[in-house]
Protein backbone atom coordinates (compact mmCIF):
# COMPACT_ATOMS: atom_id res chain seq x y z
CA UNK A 1 0.00 0.00 0.00
CA UNK A 2 1.40 3.44 -0.89
CA UNK A 3 0.71 6.58 1.16
CA UNK A 4 -1.56 7.85 -1.63
CA UNK A 5 -3.70 4.69 -1.47
CA UNK A 6 -4.99 6.08 1.82
CA UNK A 7 -6.94 8.68 -0.11
CA UNK A 8 -9.56 5.93 -0.38
CA UNK A 9 -9.07 3.78 2.70
CA UNK A 10 -7.18 3.92 5.96
CA UNK A 11 -3.96 2.14 6.76
CA UNK A 12 -3.92 1.27 10.46
CA UNK A 13 -0.81 0.84 12.60
CA UNK A 14 -1.01 -0.88 16.00
CA UNK A 15 -4.26 -1.67 17.76
CA UNK A 16 -6.54 -0.75 20.67
CA UNK A 17 -5.27 2.05 22.88
CA UNK A 18 -2.18 2.37 20.73
CA UNK A 19 -3.57 2.35 17.21
CA UNK A 20 -2.96 5.14 14.72
CA UNK A 21 -4.49 5.31 11.25
CA UNK A 22 -3.42 7.23 8.17
CA UNK A 23 -5.69 8.84 5.60
CA UNK A 24 -4.48 11.09 2.80
CA UNK A 25 -6.53 14.28 2.60
CA UNK A 26 -4.71 15.28 -0.59
CA UNK A 27 -1.84 13.33 -2.22
CA UNK A 28 0.59 15.33 -0.05
CA UNK A 29 -1.29 16.00 3.18
CA UNK A 30 -1.97 13.18 5.61
CA UNK A 31 -4.30 12.77 8.58
CA UNK A 32 -2.69 10.62 11.29
CA UNK A 33 -5.26 9.80 13.90
CA UNK A 34 -5.85 7.75 17.02
CA UNK A 35 -9.30 6.85 18.28
CA UNK A 36 -10.68 3.99 20.34
CA UNK A 37 -13.17 2.31 18.03
CA UNK A 38 -14.79 -0.61 19.85
CA UNK A 39 -13.22 0.49 23.13
CA UNK A 40 -14.90 3.91 23.00
CA UNK A 41 -17.99 2.83 24.93
CA UNK A 42 -15.94 1.69 27.91
CA UNK A 43 -13.54 4.64 27.95
CA UNK A 44 -16.09 7.39 27.40
CA UNK A 45 -18.77 5.99 29.71
CA UNK A 46 -18.01 8.51 32.45
CA UNK A 47 -16.85 11.25 30.15
CA UNK A 48 -20.23 12.55 29.03
CA UNK A 49 -21.96 11.86 32.32
CA UNK A 50 -21.70 15.47 33.53
CA UNK A 51 -23.51 16.91 30.51
CA UNK A 52 -26.89 18.53 31.12
CA UNK A 53 -28.16 16.17 28.37
CA UNK A 54 -26.10 13.14 29.41
CA UNK A 55 -28.97 10.82 28.45
CA UNK A 56 -28.41 11.68 24.78
CA UNK A 57 -24.98 10.09 25.02
CA UNK A 58 -25.97 7.05 27.05
CA UNK A 59 -28.30 5.46 24.53
CA UNK A 60 -27.70 4.08 21.05
CA UNK A 61 -25.25 6.74 20.00
CA UNK A 62 -21.90 5.51 21.30
CA UNK A 63 -19.42 8.19 20.33
CA UNK A 64 -15.68 8.24 19.84
CA UNK A 65 -13.18 11.10 19.89
CA UNK A 66 -9.99 11.24 17.81
CA UNK A 67 -6.55 12.61 18.67
CA UNK A 68 -4.92 13.67 15.44
CA UNK A 69 -1.81 14.95 13.75
CA UNK A 70 -1.35 16.10 10.17
CA UNK A 71 1.67 15.80 7.91
CA UNK A 72 2.43 17.94 4.87
CA UNK A 73 5.00 16.34 2.54
CA UNK A 74 6.58 18.69 0.00
CA UNK A 75 10.18 19.75 -0.72
CA UNK A 76 10.18 20.23 3.03
CA UNK A 77 7.91 18.27 5.32
CA UNK A 78 6.00 19.62 8.29
CA UNK A 79 4.22 17.66 10.98
CA UNK A 80 1.35 19.35 12.80
CA UNK A 81 1.32 17.99 16.38
CA UNK A 82 2.56 14.58 17.46
CA UNK A 83 -0.20 12.39 18.98
CA UNK A 84 0.47 11.12 22.51
CA UNK A 85 3.10 8.88 24.18
CA UNK A 86 0.67 5.96 24.47
CA UNK A 87 0.50 5.87 20.64
CA UNK A 88 4.23 6.45 20.16
CA UNK A 89 5.22 3.30 18.28
CA UNK A 90 2.27 3.24 15.91
CA UNK A 91 2.56 6.97 15.38
CA UNK A 92 6.25 6.84 14.45
CA UNK A 93 5.49 3.99 12.02
CA UNK A 94 2.69 6.05 10.50
CA UNK A 95 4.90 9.12 10.05
CA UNK A 96 7.60 7.02 8.40
CA UNK A 97 5.05 5.41 6.10
CA UNK A 98 3.80 8.84 4.94
CA UNK A 99 7.29 10.29 4.54
CA UNK A 100 8.21 7.32 2.35
CA UNK A 101 11.96 7.73 2.91
CA UNK A 102 12.06 11.52 3.17
CA UNK A 103 13.26 13.55 6.15
CA UNK A 104 11.05 15.30 8.64
CA UNK A 105 11.94 19.00 8.54
CA UNK A 106 9.50 20.69 10.94
CA UNK A 107 7.61 19.56 14.02
CA UNK A 108 5.01 22.28 14.46
CA UNK A 109 3.25 22.26 17.83
CA UNK A 110 -0.18 23.83 18.39
CA UNK A 111 0.12 23.65 22.19
CA UNK A 112 1.99 21.75 24.84
CA UNK A 113 -0.46 19.11 26.06
CA UNK A 114 0.66 15.48 25.77
CA UNK A 115 -1.80 14.41 23.04
CA UNK A 116 -0.55 17.31 20.92
CA UNK A 117 3.17 17.40 21.67
CA UNK A 118 4.05 14.30 23.68
CA UNK A 119 6.05 12.45 21.01
CA UNK A 120 8.33 15.35 20.10
CA UNK A 121 11.34 13.80 21.86
CA UNK A 122 10.82 10.45 20.11
CA UNK A 123 10.54 12.19 16.73
CA UNK A 124 13.73 14.15 17.42
CA UNK A 125 15.59 10.92 18.13
CA UNK A 126 14.75 9.72 14.61
CA UNK A 127 15.12 13.11 12.89
CA UNK A 128 17.55 15.13 15.04
CA UNK A 129 17.59 17.98 12.52
CA UNK A 130 13.83 18.51 12.59
CA UNK A 131 13.03 22.03 13.79
CA UNK A 132 10.41 22.26 16.53
CA UNK A 133 8.12 25.29 16.09
CA UNK A 134 6.07 26.62 19.00
CA UNK A 135 4.14 29.80 19.66
CA UNK A 136 5.99 32.82 21.01
CA UNK A 137 4.87 34.56 24.16
CA UNK A 138 6.82 33.55 27.21
CA UNK A 139 6.50 29.85 27.90
CA UNK A 140 9.50 27.93 29.16
CA UNK A 141 9.34 25.10 26.62
CA UNK A 142 11.99 22.98 28.33
CA UNK A 143 9.34 22.22 30.96
CA UNK A 144 7.23 20.68 28.22
CA UNK A 145 9.96 18.58 26.61
CA UNK A 146 10.26 21.02 23.70
CA UNK A 147 13.86 22.14 24.02
CA UNK A 148 15.41 24.36 21.34
CA UNK A 149 12.05 25.26 19.85
CA UNK A 150 11.87 28.08 17.32
CA UNK A 151 9.00 30.38 18.24
CA UNK A 152 6.53 31.81 15.76
CA UNK A 153 3.78 34.43 15.86
CA UNK A 154 0.54 34.91 13.90
CA UNK A 155 1.32 35.92 10.31
CA UNK A 156 4.67 34.16 10.18
CA UNK A 157 5.00 31.84 7.19
CA UNK A 158 7.04 28.70 6.58
CA UNK A 159 7.63 27.82 2.92
CA UNK A 160 7.61 24.11 2.19
CA UNK A 161 7.74 24.17 -1.63
CA UNK A 162 4.36 24.27 -3.35
CA UNK A 163 2.77 24.42 0.09
CA UNK A 164 3.26 27.18 2.61
CA UNK A 165 1.85 27.48 6.10
CA UNK A 166 0.86 30.63 7.95
CA UNK A 167 0.60 30.82 11.74
CA UNK A 168 -2.89 31.84 12.74
CA UNK A 169 -4.06 33.57 15.91
CA UNK A 170 -5.81 30.72 17.74
CA UNK A 171 -9.21 32.05 18.73
CA UNK A 172 -10.67 29.39 20.99
CA UNK A 173 -8.12 27.60 23.09
CA UNK A 174 -7.54 25.80 26.33
CA UNK A 175 -3.87 26.69 26.64
CA UNK A 176 -2.92 30.34 26.63
CA UNK A 177 -0.05 29.71 24.30
CA UNK A 178 -1.68 27.98 21.35
CA UNK A 179 -1.55 28.48 17.62
CA UNK A 180 -3.59 27.46 14.59
CA UNK A 181 -2.21 26.96 11.09
CA UNK A 182 -3.41 27.77 7.56
CA UNK A 183 -1.98 26.01 4.50
CA UNK A 184 -2.27 28.40 1.59
CA UNK A 185 -2.17 26.06 -1.43
CA UNK A 186 -5.03 23.83 -0.32
CA UNK A 187 -6.85 26.22 2.00
CA UNK A 188 -6.51 23.80 4.90
CA UNK A 189 -7.13 25.33 8.31
CA UNK A 190 -5.91 23.47 11.38
CA UNK A 191 -7.94 24.56 14.41
CA UNK A 192 -6.46 22.35 17.15
CA UNK A 193 -9.07 21.97 19.92
CA UNK A 194 -11.90 23.82 18.16
CA UNK A 195 -14.72 22.93 15.77
CA UNK A 196 -14.79 19.19 16.02
CA UNK A 197 -17.54 16.64 15.66
CA UNK A 198 -17.93 13.24 17.31
CA UNK A 199 -18.11 9.97 15.42
CA UNK A 200 -19.70 6.56 15.87
CA UNK A 201 -17.55 3.42 15.57
CA UNK A 202 -20.71 1.34 15.10
CA UNK A 203 -21.41 3.27 11.89
CA UNK A 204 -17.83 2.70 10.69
CA UNK A 205 -17.03 6.40 11.14
CA UNK A 206 -13.50 5.79 12.47
CA UNK A 207 -10.89 7.21 10.06
CA UNK A 208 -13.59 8.65 7.78
CA UNK A 209 -13.72 12.23 6.59
CA UNK A 210 -16.77 14.08 7.75
CA UNK A 211 -17.93 14.50 4.17
CA UNK A 212 -17.85 10.68 3.87
CA UNK A 213 -19.85 10.30 7.08
CA UNK A 214 -22.76 12.14 5.47
CA UNK A 215 -23.48 8.93 3.52
CA UNK A 216 -24.17 7.09 6.77
CA UNK A 217 -26.71 9.52 8.10
CA UNK A 218 -24.48 12.08 9.82
CA UNK A 219 -26.43 15.32 9.42
CA UNK A 220 -26.30 19.02 10.17
CA UNK A 221 -28.35 18.72 13.35
CA UNK A 222 -25.92 16.17 14.78
CA UNK A 223 -23.01 18.32 13.69
CA UNK A 224 -24.35 21.37 15.56
CA UNK A 225 -24.95 19.23 18.65
CA UNK A 226 -21.41 17.84 18.50
CA UNK A 227 -19.76 21.22 18.04
CA UNK A 228 -21.79 22.48 20.97
CA UNK A 229 -20.99 19.63 23.33
CA UNK A 230 -17.30 19.59 22.52
CA UNK A 231 -16.95 23.34 22.98
CA UNK A 232 -18.86 23.15 26.26
CA UNK A 233 -16.48 20.48 27.51
CA UNK A 234 -13.32 21.95 26.11
CA UNK A 235 -13.95 25.60 26.96
CA UNK A 236 -15.72 25.97 30.31
CA UNK A 237 -14.85 29.67 30.13
CA UNK A 238 -17.79 29.97 27.74
CA UNK A 239 -19.79 30.31 30.97
CA UNK A 240 -18.52 33.89 31.21
CA UNK A 241 -18.92 34.93 27.54
CA UNK A 242 -21.46 36.56 25.31
CA UNK A 243 -22.15 34.38 22.28
CA UNK A 244 -22.38 37.35 19.89
CA UNK A 245 -18.72 38.24 20.33
CA UNK A 246 -17.68 34.67 19.55
CA UNK A 247 -19.84 34.51 16.42
CA UNK A 248 -18.36 37.77 15.17
CA UNK A 249 -14.86 36.34 15.63
CA UNK A 250 -15.85 33.21 13.71
CA UNK A 251 -17.24 35.28 10.85
CA UNK A 252 -14.06 37.38 10.75
CA UNK A 253 -11.90 34.27 10.67
CA UNK A 254 -13.66 32.75 7.66
CA UNK A 255 -13.68 36.11 5.92
CA UNK A 256 -9.94 36.49 6.40
CA UNK A 257 -9.05 32.94 5.35
CA UNK A 258 -10.53 31.17 2.33
CA UNK A 259 -10.87 27.84 4.10
CA UNK A 260 -11.47 24.79 1.89
CA UNK A 261 -10.43 22.01 4.24
CA UNK A 262 -11.01 21.93 7.99
CA UNK A 263 -8.52 19.93 10.05
CA UNK A 264 -9.32 19.89 13.77
CA UNK A 265 -7.35 17.79 16.27
CA UNK A 266 -10.34 15.97 17.65
CA UNK A 267 -12.80 15.59 14.80
CA UNK A 268 -13.16 14.11 11.35
CA UNK A 269 -11.58 16.48 8.81
CA UNK A 270 -13.83 18.09 6.23
CA UNK A 271 -12.39 17.94 2.70
CA UNK A 272 -15.32 19.02 0.57
CA UNK A 273 -17.81 21.86 0.51
CA UNK A 274 -16.43 23.24 3.73
CA UNK A 275 -18.37 26.50 3.43
CA UNK A 276 -21.65 24.63 3.82
CA UNK A 277 -20.54 23.52 7.28
CA UNK A 278 -19.76 26.99 8.62
CA UNK A 279 -23.31 27.72 9.84
CA UNK A 280 -23.34 24.53 11.94
CA UNK A 281 -19.99 25.40 13.48
CA UNK A 282 -21.13 28.92 14.24
CA UNK A 283 -24.50 27.85 15.66
CA UNK A 284 -22.91 25.11 17.73
CA UNK A 285 -20.52 27.58 19.30
CA UNK A 286 -23.37 29.98 20.04
CA UNK A 287 -25.39 27.22 21.67
CA UNK A 288 -22.40 26.10 23.75
CA UNK A 289 -22.06 29.58 25.21
CA UNK A 290 -25.77 29.60 25.99
CA UNK A 291 -25.78 26.17 27.65
CA UNK A 292 -26.00 26.05 31.43
CA UNK A 293 -22.71 25.64 33.24
CA UNK A 294 -22.80 24.15 36.69
CA UNK A 295 -19.38 24.90 38.07
CA UNK A 296 -18.91 23.51 41.55
CA UNK A 297 -17.77 26.62 43.35
Amino acid sequence: MTPQDTLKEAKVFGEGLERVAVRAITPNIFWLTHCLGDLAEEYYKEYFAVLPNAEDYAGDRIVDYPFSSFLIVDEKSLLIDTCGPKQKDAFLDAVQFCLDGRQLDYIWISHVELPHAGNTGSLKRIWPDAQVVTVAGGENYDLHGLENAMTAAPGDVIELGAHSVEMVDALFVDHGLSQWLFERKTGMMFTADWAHNLHEPAKCHCFKFLDEMLDTGYDAATHIEDIKVNAWYQFPWLAWCDADILCEAIDDLFEQYDVQILAPSHGNPIRKDFKTFIPAIRDGMRMAAEMPFSHVL
Partner: peptide
Protein backbone atom coordinates in the same frame (compact mmCIF):
# COMPACT_ATOMS: atom_id res chain seq x y z
CA UNK B 1 0.09 34.28 29.12
CA UNK B 2 -1.71 31.38 30.74
CA UNK B 3 -5.35 32.12 29.95
CA UNK B 4 -6.00 33.46 26.50
CA UNK B 5 -9.73 32.93 26.98
CA UNK B 6 -9.70 36.10 29.08
CA UNK B 7 -10.03 38.02 25.82
CA UNK B 8 -13.61 36.75 25.40
CA UNK B 9 -15.06 36.93 28.89
CA UNK B 10 -17.08 39.43 30.86
Amino acid sequence: IAFRFLRWIK
